[in-house]
Amino acid sequence: MRLITVAGPPSSGKTAIICKTAEALQAAGISVGVIKFDCLSSGDQVTYERRGIPARTGLSGNLCPDHFYVSNIEECLDWGLQSGFDLLISESAGLCNRCAPHIKDVCAVCVIDNLSGVETPRKIGPMLKMADIVVITKGDIVSQAEREVFVHRIRQVNSSAVIIHVNGLTGQGGHELGRLLKDAAAVDSLQGKLLRFSMPAALCSYCLGQRRIGADFQMGNVKKMELG
């Protein structure tokens, strides 16, 4: 089975892109399953299942979504293997822009949208910088010049990724993305595999439930701003 990690800022169009691509793949006789990682709630499992795409949802609640994801991805892979999919896609939102969900030797996709502005590529960390494929959405509503500048800005932070435009509404580009995904490397086990980059660090008193503000209550991994 092939495994694909898809990540991107909230509302960038990940679910729409996965739906369109999965439909194109299924039309070509390739079975696809989806694992959706979210924080508080998600109706996307229904969205997928309505399109005949088997899906499971994981809600991280008050845990760091990235840490929750990496603690569960192995079991998700097993679910995919047992279900007999040709291709399993994990979808997770990069909520802090420093998210780093991509795994070495596992095809990594970052979805980012043209409407988010040309500064956005600079604001996103390993999720974009270390992706193999960068999917740009919402290109149909901004000018050609902005699309070209946006591509250039992505190139500045990721010089080797394949960059592809996909329209989440019409599905244009989904067929082309599907071709890239079906050639991804097969993965039978994630045991011992490496994340491409370390996840955002945590473990301070606030991670453990502290709610009071003030230096006396800050312990562990604490970093201070330089205000000049």
Binding site: N114, D140, I141, V142, S143, Q144, E146, V149
Partner: peptide, 12 residues
């Protein structure tokens, strides 16, 4: 292909 359509706006 470069595109020009009625739905396009400048957002910058």
């Amino acid at each position: 292909v470069a595109q020009l359509s009625q739905n396009m706006n400048f957002v910058m």
